[in-house]
């Protein structure tokens, strides 16, 4: 069969690598303008540290979005998880590892509610998680008695907490080397799982065509459940890091990570021509957000203009990644 290319050879290249190019360009511009204060090992660690939490939540979103799912309630649930972690560690004085394991397990338990609404009641993901966002908010506040959980505060039932302060180890989770390592571990896990296992392939098949996946003998409900449970693990891990970094579980402490994490997934979708939520793309997307934030702050952009500039560059990256593809789609569709 004859092979003919109609698109110029590099058209696909630009769209496939738009997010990576934007990332490299932003880094280069900041390095030129700010020199050593941006382009240094210390600042690189800074950026990685600041993107770690967003990335962990974004990996969770990637796992849910691979089989064409969606979760609006992820970060509200994360706030609940952080309450759980802080209260298990401070109020009940459990060892750090046990607090973490229990937090993961309890978050998975709470996520059964999400799965129940989606898989048993068959409510569309978007609507179910929209409602659950409020349910989880309420559940979390009910558990803490309406307040944050921080060191030295009495429990809602009036007794003194078993542990009066955070330990050094518990604070290290949210600090430089550990939070970065945790982030990289999450990304590596999602990368291998989605790309190199048959389970990942089944999730992507569902994301491509749910009916065809089911008719190919894939147990679609089981796999949606699996994706949800893995997302719950990521939510719990992210919540623990947030809690450790703030040395408290604050009210709505994790809620603000929802939109940046979703943005990271969307920016990362097209990286490398994947055309589906993928772990490495998500990492690139989160890095783009973090580099912009860091560089613009150093440039002296005032904090209240920052979101607008950040959003603008994100939009440009999305235009580069999606815009030309739509045009080409005109030609390739038959």
């Amino acid at each position: 069969m004859k092979q003919i290319r109609i698109r110029p050879k590099n058209a696909g290249f630009w769209t496939d690598w738009a997010a990576v190019i934007a990332l490299a360009a932003a880094a280069a511009v900041f390095a030129l303008l700010r020199g050593g204060s941006f382009f240094s090992a210390a600042n690189a660690v800074n950026i990685l540290r600041s993107m770690s939490i967003t990335t962990i939540f974004a990996v969770g979103a990637t796992l849910t979005m691979a089989p064409d799912g969606f979760d609006m309630s992820a970060c509200s649930l994360a706030t609940v998880s952080s309450f759980l972690f802080a209260s298990l560690f401070l109020w009940f004085g459990l060892p750090l590892w046990l607090s973490a394991v229990l937090t993961v397990a309890l978050t998975m338990g709470l996520y059964l509610l999400t799965m129940f609404l989606i898989l048993v009641c068959r409510i569309p993901d978007m609507l179910a998680t929209c409602a659950l966002m409020f349910v989880y908010q309420g559940l979390g506040l009910w558990w803490t008695g309406g307040g944050a959980v921080s060191a030295g505060m009495p429990t809602p039932w009036g007794t003194a907490p078993v542990r009066g302060s955070w330990t050094e180890a518990s604070l290290a989770i949210g600090a430089a080397p550990w939070c970065i390592l945790i982030m990289l571990a999450c990304v590596a896990f999602a990368f291998v799982f989605l790309r190199y296992t048959r389970h990942g392939r089944c999730l992507y098949a569902m994301g491509s065509n749910q009916t065809a996946a089911a008719y190919s003998g894939i147990a679609v409900k089981k796999y949606r459940f699996l994706a949800g449970m893995l997302t719950a693990v990521m939510i719990a891990v992210g919540a623990i890091v947030v809690c450790s970094r703030n040395s408290a579980a604050q009210i709505s402490g994790c809620d603000s990570y929802l939109m940046p994490s979703l943005a990271a997934v969307f920016v990362g979708r097209s990286v490398g021509g994947a055309e589906k939520p993928n772990a490495l793309g998500t990492l690139v997307g989160a890095a783009l957000v973090a580099v912009l934030e860091n560089g613009l702050t150093q440039m002296g952009v005032v904090y209240y203009v920052l979101p607008a500039v950040k959003g603008g560059v994100l939009a440009l990256a999305l235009v580069a990644a999606y815009g030309p593809r739509r045009w080409a789609g005109h030609m390739t569709k038959r």
Binding site: T197, R201, S208
Partner: peptide
Amino acid sequence: RKEGLFPGESVAFHLGIASLKKWSRLSLL
């Protein structure tokens, strides 16, 4: 189109999708 195809995926993807267990070891493809 509606019930059999995965848009955007390759011929090899389609041919293997119903028997992934055969083409993997310990879940690794």
